[in-house]
Design a protein around this nucleic acid. Structure first.
Lengths: 154, 154
DNA sequence: GTTTGACAGTTCTATTTTAGAACTATAGCC
DNA sequence: GGCTATAGTTCTAAAATAGAACTGTCAAAC
């Protein structure tokens, strides 16, 4: 399967995976949420090859997840800033971080703690139902075909 | 960066990405949550090559996300079932589905609708703070080093 | 005015991963 | 024996990634 096939499937997961479903993209997004914005900063903190970093940043800009904004005119230099579409990926990143905290931490505990500025407390992210507010569990969810559903795809 | 390097970083996102951070693994997990359990069923619904499917299933079993359970003795046949660790990935998958619904749907609308059996309504997943219950936004979260933090890693 | 260094990339070759197809093995059914 | 179903393994070709070196612009230092 090619990346562009994936993007056109009638499945929201496939479409998301087509955009952010590789390890470097996810790690780049982590850095974005940690306020990293510049090419050299991404490169040195991730140890990603410059070639791949360049490719991935272009892709994220192409999909409207990052904006390439000039911060210096001479020489021309740009930084990469999350758009709203990019900021909306926060639950994806946080869900992965929380799973890692829960299932992949060593005996020393979790690497980072998160403080919610609004309430001032250290927290974990919890996914709830938009309608009743209860935490979601896979076994209590039933799936129906929606209007954008096409045949022959998962 | 190699996959095993990633797994050992002191960052919960890296560790999660090391396990589920590739497109096929994420798509296989989608199928698991849609109650797919058998080799042939994964293969025909995903159009993944048999070789890669075999590799990915082994990896998921190795990490304790799937269990390989016999359902026939002669001939020996197995099916792959989510463990609790695997079920706990539900928020990751749902966060990606929701982002795809919001930002990658075409004019016809979303491909699947989700019903919460407990309350009977069609819902969207929302990520909230475990302490105050308010929806989480990237800009309202501050990060602190935790006990499992090592130097020199993101 | 030449050198040095920072920044943001591009280009090149070698290695690793993935795609695609064919093949293996066990067993039930006709 | 020949056909089908299931769950894989093995093989070669194509694509992606790693790793290192290179390009070009400009500012500041010597």
């Amino acid at each position: 399967m090619k990346w562009d096939t994936l993007e056109e499937e009638s499945c929201s997961l496939s479409r998301t995976v087509a955009v952010v479903g590789d390890r470097w993209t996810l790690l780049i997004l982590r850095e974005c949420f940690l306020r990293v914005r510049r090419f050299e900063a991404f490169q040195s903190s991730l140890q990603i090859t410059r070639h791949l970093l360049s490719e991935r940043l272009k892709k994220l800009v192409r999909f409207g997840i990052l904006r390439r904004v000039p911060y210096s005119e001479t020489p021309k230099r740009y930084e990469y800033i999350l758009t709203q579409k990019g900021l909306d990926l926060y639950p994806v990143i946080m869900a992965m971080v929380h799973w890692g905290d829960t299932h992949m931490s060593d005996e020393r505990g979790r690497p980072l703690l998160h403080e919610h500025k609004s309430c001032g407390k250290l927290f974990d992210p919890v996914m709830v139902c938009s309608e009743c507010g209860e935490p979601l569990h896979a076994k209590q969810v039933h799936v129906h075909p929606g209007p954008g559903r096409m045949e022959a795809t998962g």
